[in-house]
Every structure is written in structure tokens, then in C-alpha cells.
């Protein structure tokens, strides 16, 4: 009887822990889990750096927020990429993979990256496709922020000369 009481007292917290920790394992593909557990390139770059482009996007339907930054060298090659995502496992994995893929590409090459490629690589189910779209939009936003920065710098240069 006392054994039963002790077991039932412990039960709720154990149950909760099991539920919160095992949910991803039940639904996500192993590639997603890999990125989720060992995300690549998490962090921030200095957004005031002229070579850094920042993309900040949110998905109203699920409440996820994603920040993706790229650092471009003078030859137009992306030398570094960082991300910070607050959202589900698929959103984190999509942005993690996106930073891996854009590194080493030129700005124009990075623009061609499609959400379908990300979704395919991570085997995302249809209900999670919007996470890969968010990652694509984050890259586009970062690239466009970088371009706008370069244009304004060029304009300033033109004015001063």
C-alpha cells in the first residue's frame, strides 16, 4: 500500500517529463533531430557590420520567429552564417541547414536556394513545409538586407566623390 502511494506520488512529474522530452522523437525525422539536438551555426553576427545582412521573419500561423544572418566578403561570397530560431524542431532544423548550405556560396547562388530542397533534405511532412518556407524567406530577407546596405554604402561613396 505504501509502495503504491509512493509510486503514485511520483507518477505525475515523471509522466510530464516523459511527455515533454519524448514528443519530438515520436514525430520528427532523424535528420531533423540531428539538427535540433546539435544545431549548426547558432548565434549572432554584428548587425551593424557593413558586410553583414540580417533577415528577421516570423510565421503568424504558428508563432515561430527566425533570425538568420550572413557575412559576405568583398568577392560576394558568404563566409559566415548564423541563426537564432524560436520555434518547433522543424523550424530550428530548417534554419540550421540553411546556414550550412549558404556558407561558401555567392550571394546570387544563395538566392536560388529553395524551400523544397530544405524540406526534401529533412524529409519534412506536409504540415511542416511552412517551416522550410520560413527558412527560405529568412535567407531572402538577409540577402536583401545585405544588398540594401551595399547600395546605400555605394550611394554615399558616390556622393562623397
Amino acid at each position: 500500500m505504501s509502495l503504491f502511494a509512493a509510486a503514485s506520488r511520483k507518477l505525475p512529474s515523471t509522466l510530464l517529463r516523459i511527455r515533454s522530452s519524448s514528443t519530438p522523437a515520436l514525430f520528427y525525422h532523424e535528420k531533423v533531430l540531428d539538427h535540433y539536438e546539435n544545431p549548426r551555426n547558432v548565434g549572432s553576427l554584428d548587425k551593424n557590420d557593413r558586410r553583414v545582412g540580417t533577415g528577421l521573419v516570423g510565421a503568424p500561423a504558428c508563432g515561430d520567429v527566425m533570425k538568420l544572418q550572413i557575412k559576405v566578403d568583398d568577392d560576394g561570397k558568404i563566409i559566415d552564417a548564423k541563426f537564432k530560431t524560436f520555434g518547433c524542431g522543424s523550424a530550428i532544423a530548417s534554419s540550421s541547414l540553411a546556414t550550412e548550405w549558404v556558407k561558401g556560396k555567392t550571394v546570387d547562388e544563395a538566392l536560388k536556394l529553395k524551400n523544397t530542397d530544405i524540406a526534401k533534405e529533412l524529409s519534412l511532412p506536409p504540415v511542416k513545409l511552412h517551416c522550410s518556407m520560413l527558412a527560405e524567406d529568412a535567407i531572402k530577407a538577409a540577402l536583401s538586407d545585405y544588398k540594401i546596405k551595399q547600395e546605400s554604402i555605394n550611394e554615399e561613396k558616390a556622393k562623397s566623390t
Partner: peptide, 15 residues
């Protein structure tokens, strides 16, 4: 789904 929000100030606050 797939609609993207880009109001930078609000997104900054969320971050």
C-alpha cells in the same frame, strides 16, 4: 500558413 511577417520592430521585440 506560409505567410511571413516582416515588421522588423515587432520581430526584434519577439526575439
Amino acid at each position: 500558413e506560409g505567410n511571413v511577417q516582416t515588421n522588423p520592430e515587432f520581430l526584434m521585440e519577439l526575439m
